[in-house]
């Protein structure tokens, strides 16, 4: 029987199950122990697994990311929580120059099985320094995997897969979704990295979207079906690196149109990579330019009204799909 769980509960189950299954797995970050996580994702873990497996760290992202990388190099499997992914930028050198490169630099002798997880993206009036979608920075880095889930069941299954992966994984959650509910299967399951999921089948226009904003895209797809007779096929790559491009191509070759919808800046965002791959591999199938619906290219505003204007909205997705469909 599937149960209805919040995202934070699904993540908590994933952590607890993997810690139970493999004693090398441990959790580290700011306030993850006694306080049980800024968003309560690590609730109960300190009590259950003890202070050797659940560590509160000082406020030093470069420090605990570095400790985690070292621990992973000697055989442990750390799960590092960034209170928000915005703070990972302080640890950027550790992630880009160390975690991502060690396997290649050691000719495969050392691996870094580490997960960096935490919330990213807009979080309602948290302004320029606490609202960024950092996934494009990490998706550009060879040696990393980048996961951006969108439903509670996927949060759980993809986190379990990330913990078992022998490579460094950047696992970006949504701060606005920790309380979001959805069905989560009973029992053991993992969702493989690098496999897309069609969230809504359709015939007229492919919409590629991921993370929290996928739900905006799905809402737009409903509006488009009801009010404009356009049936969108919504494809969720779930993993941005590696990217399941074949799933995207298969859909575009059917619909001949594509709109990419994501949170984060448009200029040089992951959407650009998706557009390029589609134009490159589906050139003769495309009946219209590939559209991108993204954040406006400005630092995230604090004011609620402005924040909403900056983020992709149902209206902007509807407009883009209609342009791509010439309807």
């Amino acid at each position: 029987m599937p149960r209805t769980l919040q995202v934070r509960e699904a993540l908590n189950e994933a952590l607890a199950e993997e810690m139970e299954r493999d004693e090398r797995v441990f959790v580290m970050g700011e306030e993850v122990g006694h306080y049980q996580g800024a968003y309560k994702v690590t609730r109960g873990l300190l009590e259950r697994f003890g202070p050797r497996r659940v560590w509160d760290t000082p406020i030093n992202e470069g420090g605990f990311a570095g400790i985690g990388i070292g621990a992973a190099m000697v055989g442990l499997r750390p799960v590092i929580e960034f209170m928000t992914f915005n703070f990972s930028l302080v640890a950027f050198d550790q992630i880009v120059n160390n975690a991502a490169k060690i396997r290649q630099m050691s000719a495969g002798r050392l691996s870094v099985p580490i997960v960096f997880r935490g919330g990213g993206g807009a979080a309602r009036m948290l302004a320029a320094q606490h609202s960024q979608a950092t996934e494009p920075y990490y998706a550009h880095v060879p040696g990393l995997k980048v996961v951006v889930p969108s439903t509670p069941a996927e949060y759980k299954g993809l986190l379990k897969a990330s913990i078992r992966d022998d490579n460094p994984v950047v696992f970006i959650e949504s701060e606005l979704m920790y309380g979001a509910k959805g069905e989560v299967p009973d029992g053991e399951y993992v969702i493989p990295l690098g496999v897309a999921d069609v969230k809504r089948p359709g015939t007229d226009c492919t919409v590629v979207s991921w993370g929290r904003i996928l739900h905006t895209a799905l809402e737009a797809a409903e509006v488009l079906a009801k009010e404009h007779g356009i049936e969108c096929e919504v494809v969720d790559p779930r993993t941005l690196r590696p990217l399941d491009e074949q799933a995207i191509f298969a859909s575009v070759r059917k619909t001949n149109r594509c709109v990419v919808v994501h949170e984060g800046w448009r200029y040089g965002g992951v959407g650009a990579e998706v557009v390029d791959r589609v134009q490159s591999s589906c050139f003769d199938w495309l009946d219209a330019p590939v559209e991108r619906v993204c954040n406006v290219d400005v630092p995230q505003p604090y004011a609620r009204e402005l924040e909403e204007l900056v983020l992709p909205s149902v209206e902007r997705v509807v407009d883009a799909v209609r342009r791509a469909s010439y309807r």
Binding site: Y267, G268, G271, A272, E273, V275, D276, V278, Q279, S280, P289, V290, E291, R292
Partner: peptide, 9 residues
């Protein structure tokens, strides 16, 4: 990717 996406758009 950005250059290609802009031209494709």
């Amino acid at each position: 990717a950005e250059l290609a996406a802009r031209i494709a758009e």
